[in-house]
Design a protein around this nucleic acid. Structure first.
Lengths: 204, 204
DNA sequence: GGAAAATATGAACACCGTTCAGTAAGTTTG
DNA sequence: CAAACTTACTGAACGGTGTTCATATTTTCC
């Protein structure tokens, strides 16, 4: 019987509906306006209905985060195409920084907000970030195999590159670059030049 | 006449009262419980009273943030005592990371939350962070004068060290280290070892 | 067709930040 | 000292939030 299958499909479509509405609000109105009530409004359902598909708001945000990560993975796959692994590592850094600076709200949901992480139990893997992370690990592993990078440990290398990129992006996204008293263009220039300077110092 | 002075003093004491209560909630209950209502409860005043001393919650959080920064400056002054400027730079990094990992809620208020920054107008300096930042700038400048560091520009050096430290701390504080599937001890070890590895790569 | 199950919702609860009319206390003046 | 004025404070309300639940509607099954 195809009824249970159709029901399941409809359930998934409804979840997709909810996620799309939430995603749209995140990108265009800002995450502070992405309340359950407004999301419900946008898809023309009652707020209570959302709770038939999600346990709570955190779980919904976790799914929106998943959608964001699949976009990041797309961007990575499009832009990290260099044959040389270290060149590719640079492409990773540039793509990541562009992505973060161009979609600050989305970046926050992915890497800064605590809400979506509350659904990830203690000692459990953070599945959403796994694919993007794996791509970077792969690239770093190749860099190390070919001795292109000053690291002894793949995980340490990945963490370092990620931390530097994330540090630069998040200082900007969270308005902390204000302490440096620069114009918006100077800030952007400083961020990119610091990233490249870093990548240069780890090159072997 | 001393009455207006006493009034002013009382006003400042009240603000200090409010900040202390908020600070205590931030550190011990978590910032989600630090609502205006609960802060008012703790100092035994009506919520409305707080609005006689602060325009809104953001402004209050900005002052709490200031208090946090004066503590960080204290820690910096206590711990960055080495004669050699590069040794001192390492001490800065260690002190900063210890501070962040030991006071995650406070760290968030200082470097991650947007709320307290909303009171800092566009194109205006972020005064709260200025002193701590100046200390690091001073140290980096000395490192460069003595040719101890692989940077051509003081600001670039400061930004890089700050971004790396902040990146490492905030990935942990925002639960993103979960993607690496490590135990809590392994995480701590990875953070500190990545920081030291980085400081080593910029050493000249 | 009617029972059972799935789906949707209006109304309510307990919070939140914030405002404002009104009250109580303190200060100044006649 | 008493009246007038100023300051400090608050209770109650407004509009918002996430969430729950009894009720109503629709769909499925026998």
């Amino acid at each position: 019987m195809g009824i249970t299958e159709r029901k399941e499909r409809e359930k998934q479509e409804m979840r997709k509906n909810i996620i799309d509405a939430a995603m749209h609000m995140f990108m265009h109105e800002g995450y502070e306006d992405a309340s359950i009530r407004k999301i419900a409004d946008k898809i023309e359902y009652s707020p209570a209905t959302i709770y038939l598909y999600y346990k709570d708001k955190d779980e919904l945000l976790y799914d929106v985060q998943a959608e964001c990560f699949s976009r990041l993975v797309e961007v990575f796959k499009e832009r990290t195409t260099a044959a040389d692994p270290f060149e590719r590592l640079i492409q990773f850094g540039e793509a990541y920084m562009d992505f973060g600076l161009q979609n600050p709200q989305v970046y926050e949901l992915m890497f800064i907000m605590k809400a979506p992480m509350k659904t990830v139990e203690a000692c459990e893997m953070w599945k959403n970030g796994d694919d993007a992370f794996a791509l970077l690990v792969q690239c770093m592993a190749e860099c190390m195999e070919m001795g292109r990078v000053k690291f002894n440990d793949v995980l340490q290398g990945v963490l370092s590159v990620w931390a530097m990129s994330h540090g630069l992006i998040s200082l900007e996204v969270c308005y902390r670059m204000k302490v440096m008293n620069l114009t918006e263009e100077q800030v952007k220039a400083a961020l990119y030049s610091s990233l490249h300077h870093y990548l240069d110092t780890i090159k072997k």
